[in-house]
Design a protein around this nucleic acid. Structure first.
Lengths: 207, 207, 207, 207
DNA sequence: TATGAATGAGAGTTCATTCAT
DNA sequence: TATGAATGAACTCTCATTCAT
């Protein structure tokens, strides 16, 4: 989005991977410099400091996190199908951005650094509004349960996905997903289907 | 629980809080020593090293994470009510142990350190088995949907809860939960109710 | 010699071995306590401090370093044979006390600690006097070269021996002494013979 | 000699002196930094670690330890005079390199660290071969005793010298060498003469 | 007499950052 | 614009020693 040149983008990408793998505090500037094949001084030179690089990274990635529902709204689909498509969009988006999500989630709940997540919150609010719009439509048309706590649907979608990812070794074990491909495939089929059905069940089932 | 004396327990509790707040790598032994009002050397003295203290902490807390459903199984409740109670148990348990869960989740998905989470996995498997048992009962009696992916129910419960906790500042904002008490109250009522209804909807709604 | 009880002697023996192997500064009180199977506090308890234990060790061993020539002087041997026997005595003595010699030699030339080596010097002077006595006898009887620098004979004997010991790995290599036994045997035969002949050659050869 | 810059050489020289004075384990990186007027971090920065600095030091100095006898061999001197010159060369060389010799001798016989002394051994072998060459010449011409254990001549030369140095306080005392100059002078005249005569006596005296 | 618990000091090393070039 | 050199601060851990029992 911003004014990052090619080299800066390269550094950010390397930093993103390492921060996701080892945490911000567990990753040294030397690690990043080595992995990105740059001089150690470049991080301070380009971003001011290690922390400012983290902030730059968050800004750099935040835009990627927004889901695009403009077209979805206009499509001639039933609210139920729209929800299915929306969950699909959500999962595709966060699956592509696992790393930055992991980093942000850590920082959000960390008392170590005070960071500005305004832009991130804006994206969340926008995404949430998109969801609310579709659900409202379904509720008005009497299709969706009207007593649903809409604010908690996003935590349900994202939480289920991330919890599965966080405990990857455990689920690889009990689900016999021995290869990266098998795991990724399970996420894109079974896990996605489960989350879609969960959301639909919440919206459709009358308590 | 194990063979930890009073002072060791105190250190572990302080370490747990700080690790949850600032991460393992973001917390120095000095931080812990200061907060626990002990000499810096005590950490190495009692646990061998900072990392071994982390391992001790995980072992120390792991047993707390098991849910007790023995009594629940015997109670004269419908499968549906049992599930409601089970989710309640789950949430109570993880709400009490948020810190260690956060620590473990970070370490599980970290390439920084190689830790042994066998005992943690055992607990997860035991908890999972408890849940399967109750659901199977409901399925056999024709109450519960038989096409549910049972393995993904726990991620749904825990994931929703943790995602809400992780994004606490965001939800405090949009839900106008201005005090700790208000937030905690929302978790224990609205969030719990949402998760319980989600699980019930999954189990009961026929796709 | 002194008032060391059984346990103290045991500690000193263990310390002697470790100090010889790894140096005083390279050996921790914990190392000694572990090897001697005693409590860490015992070293300070028995000897006051680590350094005082070293001093105690030097005193404890010093007497062992004196060679006994009283009987030798009285025996009806030629001065040459007496010298041969004397070198034999010397080498036997220092071979038995390699460890303490190594320790003392390090401390003597060290600026780290200021130690009192008076008792050690006394022994050296006594040993040196014994040697001078025998050589004087030989010189007076016109058998030994009168221009020998007697003070440098002891450095020749001990120096050759210790240099060989110091460079043990090198000599094991070039002399093909593959076992401890082979090495020890070489010392007791070839090296001893060489040193004896060296001293004799010095005393007998007229420049 | 190698690829050490000016500052690295300075650090190595300071370290050499301190290691010789107080031993490797008795010298802290802080001591070296202070004496060399550098930042503490420089040792790790330049050499990787304290131990690697020691290895660098050994390599840095090893070449200095080789004696040059190429010219000596060609000179029109008698084998006896050549031996005298050779001992002179040896003593001059080791007198200049007392410190590194002391350090190496300690490490050679230490079980604390495992170091690679291959380059040092190579130099020793080369020096030893030089000596053997000259002696062989004398033996073939019937001048030198043919029953000499040539391998033990170097220990005799170096051992005598080092033992004298090691026990410096003792010899200062009994030889009344009250100043550094007097001691140094004694080494360069009396001690050297003694060692030269010792080697000559060994080679010339027929048992 | 003997010991486990505990401590302050200092060890070697790595950290993010700065500076001269 | 970019970098290698260099630094002070902070890191974890071990040290010899002390103290209450």
């Amino acid at each position: 989005m911003d004014n990052f040149n090619e080299k800066q983008v390269c550094i950010l990408q390397v930093a993103e991977r390492l921060f996701a793998e080892k945490g911000f505090d567990g990753t040294s500037v030397r690690d990043i410099a080595k992995a990105a094949e740059i001089n150690i001084a470049m991080v301070s030179y380009y971003f001011g400091s290690k922390e400012k690089m983290l902030e730059a990274l968050v800004l750099f990635r935040t835009d990627d996190l927004a889901i695009q529902i403009e077209n979805l709204s206009k499509e001639p689909l039933s609210p139920l199908d729209k929800i299915g498509r929306l969950v699909d969009l959500y999962l595709t988006r966060i699956n592509q951005n696992k790393d930055i999500y992991k980093i942000i989630h850590f920082e959000l709940s960390s008392k170590k650094r005070v960071m500005n997540f305004e832009s991130f919150n804006q994206v969340k609010k926008r995404n949430s509004a998109s969801m609310k719009q579709i659900i409202s439509e379904g509720q008005m048309r009497g299709i969706f349960n009207s007593e649903v706590n809409i604010d908690l649907l996003v935590p349900t979608i994202l939480g289920t996905f991330f919890h599965f990812q966080m405990n990857r070794p455990y689920y690889e074990d009990i689900l016999h997903l021995t290869t990266d491909e098998a795991f990724e495939n399970y996420v894109k089929t079974d896990l996605k289907k489960h989350i879609q059905q969960t959301i639909k069940a919440i919206l459709l089932y009358e308590m």
